[in-house]
Design a protein around this nucleic acid. Sequence first.
DNA 1: ATTTACATTAACGTAACGTAAAGGTGTAAA
DNA 2: TTTACACCTTTACGTTACGTTAATGTAAAT
Lengths: 254, 254
Amino acid sequence: MEYTVQQLAKLAGITGRTLRYYDEIGLLKPARVNSSGYRIYGEKEIDQLQQILFFRALEVDLDTIKKIMQSPEFDMITALKSHREELLTKRRQIDLLIENVEKTIAMKGGKVTMSNQEKFSGFTKQMIEENEKKFGKEIRSKYGNKTVDKSNEKLMGMTEEQYLVAKKLEEQVLETLNEAFVTGDPASEIAQKAADLHRQWLSFYWSQYTKEAHAGVAQMYVADERFSAYYEREHKGAAKFLHDAIMIYTGVDK
Amino acid sequence: MEYTVQQLAKLAGITGRTLRYYDEIGLLKPARVNSSGYRIYGEKEIDQLQQILFFRALEVDLDTIKKIMQSPEFDMITALKSHREELLTKRRQIDLLIENVEKTIAMKGGKVTMSNQEKFSGFTKQMIEENEKKFGKEIRSKYGNKTVDKSNEKLMGMTEEQYLVAKKLEEQVLETLNEAFVTGDPASEIAQKAADLHRQWLSFYWSQYTKEAHAGVAQMYVADERFSAYYEREHKGAAKFLHDAIMIYTGVDK
DNA sequence: ATTTACATTAACGTAACGTAAAGGTGTAAA
DNA sequence: TTTACACCTTTACGTTACGTTAATGTAAAT
């Protein structure tokens, strides 16, 4: 049995364009070309196409498929295994994305019914995320990927116990901050203690502490009202105060 | 503080090209352009860029980001929700892809020029695979994806040492089975020990042990001659014997 | 004979940049 | 002051796997 482009296309559930493209890139050539220039495919080509579509379904790129098809068993297994790794990585990424999207939805949507606690915890993760964006690359090049990954693992995989400790620290930051605020001096000992507690707390979410990043977070506290609101429940201006204290603490001016 | 393209790019961990592109498509315009045509960005642009990168990390396409940024709260939630749906669909697809890739790996693994050892290891994978097919779905819903992934990772990512231990267990299963076979009683202590060793061995490949799965494997030993052949090298009927022992061991009747 | 359905090649469009190429600008060292 | 060198600019083609016209030829059905 012989097939023309459309026939084979219909058979395989693809378009004619795809077949012409595969011909063009030398992935699947027709058995012959008739006198009118029509591409004619035979049984052998059907089998090949099936193989191609199989790999394509696995999201293997056409170039790789070509190589695989041209020399079968040419380390197909290794190729598939690494492809599998890619897929697993991809899924982990998607899992993270879903988590983040849901987090964002929750923050945007459930404005009312969320406790400040929960809100902040959500913000924290977002904050870490954005910090990662800002400083991630630097740190990656400085300390290697492992450090950063570990940090992310830490963030995402905190145990219940760790989480409780972090929450405790969070409270202490707030307490100390409020206590320090009344002194009015961000360089005061108690204010610096607040900054230090804040560093400890941050380190819980971010294993690779840097002054710059810490200062960056502080910047966000004044810039972003979602954060400032959290710190200013007791005293208006507390977020700015914490910011100033952290700036002194880190010694980062700018 | 003002930044030129490279400076901001470095800060944000992207390339200058990206910033120029964002300018080109009107996603992020510089604060101003100096007399030499240099793009100059300010603090406000940094914040905007952070927002952009946040959405980009969520794999939202730039066009959508643009719309979101241009009219904040423009049904951001709905947009995010549908984006979440997309992600979920994508994950399901990837799950299927992974499943198929693994199936293919397993099938290709048990092919031609392999030693018996290697063959068996190939069969093992296929077996695990088929188990996964049979019980995977249940387990996924019961224990979530993470458990199953861990199991697969375990299977594919065993260390050399682990592999040796597994091989040792494999031998012991065979030894004990042969020893038990002569008693003729699959309920005997030694036969049950064989079943237990088999469970241990299986657990090496499958971190989430369940009686049902174990029984399923046993079923395969009698149904599939590739497996039975392995166990019956010494005694004919040994595969059936192991099957019976495992059935008693697991308490799964049927 | 005409319509319909199919075939062909050529060529532009897609998304989000990467990567030259060709040339201007800023600044620090020789 | 010259020179080196890093950085800036715009222009424009390359990337993937086709989709989508466009312009035109061919086979089959009415």
